[in-house]
């Protein structure tokens, strides 16, 4: 599978604390990957390095073969990013906000892409709404529409369904899956909702203390850690029972399955 994202040896330190410690990460074209781990595991820092918003202390990120360090702008053309916690820019109507971002992505007439994106998530009625009037779920949906206007090869979502009602979260998930299938977009997502991760992703990476401690299909990882599901693995790692890269009873140091 042709990779859209290759990250090698990513390291990031904040005041002597190593937030990310040698992360290697590859996402193939059209692949759906979840990045999981307890709070402070280094997920968001890893994502922000992939996006070019934070420079790594060591390591390299390539997006569709373009080096993030050498050409951030060219690499960013292949990525779309949305986060559940980010608001819309104030004092703009939804269609104005999306038009602005469409043009930032270099699309002279982003109207058709905006209409298609709003329709995909069944929020056409929000086109004239002002940003501050939107609920958090609606903001998330508009954020994902924004992230996909330029048909990115890689969609990066940080906590896309955080604090959403279950019905809205389901709509977000369905829209994302439909988008990935229709456009062949690869997905890199973080979430604290393990059931959502199991539905959304084909492959899961577990981070703990800034390192990838497991990489594989959700059910395979659960089995490897002798847990029923990903939530069990998550709780296991959150309790810091496994700071080293070793599964219970195993001698392996590499969990790539």
């Amino acid at each position: 599978m042709e990779p859209v994202l290759v990250a090698r040896g990513l390291v990031k330190e904040y005041r002597r604390t190593r937030a990310v410690d040698g992360v290697d990460l590859t996402v193939g074209a059209g692949e759906r990957v979840a990045l999981l781990g307890p709070n402070g595991a280094g997920k968001t820092t890893t994502l922000l390095m992939v996006l070019g918003a934070i420079s790594p202390d060591a390591g390299e990120v390539e997006v569709c073969g373009v080096s993030q360090r050498r050409s951030r702008s060219a690499a960013a053309e292949h990525i779309g990013f949305a986060a559940g916690y980010l608001p819309l820019a104030g004092e703009l109507r939804v269609h104005e906000y999306l038009t602005m971002y469409g043009r930032i992505y270099g699309i002279p007439d982003p109207g058709p892409a905006i209409a298609a994106g709003l329709a995909r998530f069944r929020i056409e009625h929000l086109a004239e709404a002002m940003g501050p009037q939107l609920s958090s779920g609606q903001r998330t949906l508009v954020g994902i529409v924004r992230a996909c206007l330029h048909r990115p090869r890689l969609l990066v979502l940080d906590e896309p369904t955080a604090s959403l009602d279950p019905d809205v979260a389901a709509r977000v998930r369905d829209g994302i899956l439909e988008l990935c299938d229709a456009e062949g977009t690869a997905l890199l997502v973080t979430s604290h909702d393990m059931r959502e991760v199991e539905r959304l992703s084909e492959r899961v990476l577990f981070l703990a203390q800034g390192r990838i401690v497991a990489d594989g299909r959700p059910e395979e990882i659960a089995a490897r850690f002798d847990r029923e599901d990903l939530e069990g693995v998550f709780l296991h790692l959150a309790e810091d029972r496994l700071p080293e890269r070793e599964p219970p009873g195993g001698q392996q140091t590499d969990f790539h399955l």
Partner: peptide
């Protein structure tokens, strides 16, 4: 400053805008 007040900075920084 408007971008910082509306927390739009991250959204902008990850786009291709130079």
């Amino acid at each position: 400053l408007e971008e910082t007040w509306t927390r739009n900075l991250l959204n902008l920084m990850v786009t291709p805008i130079r």
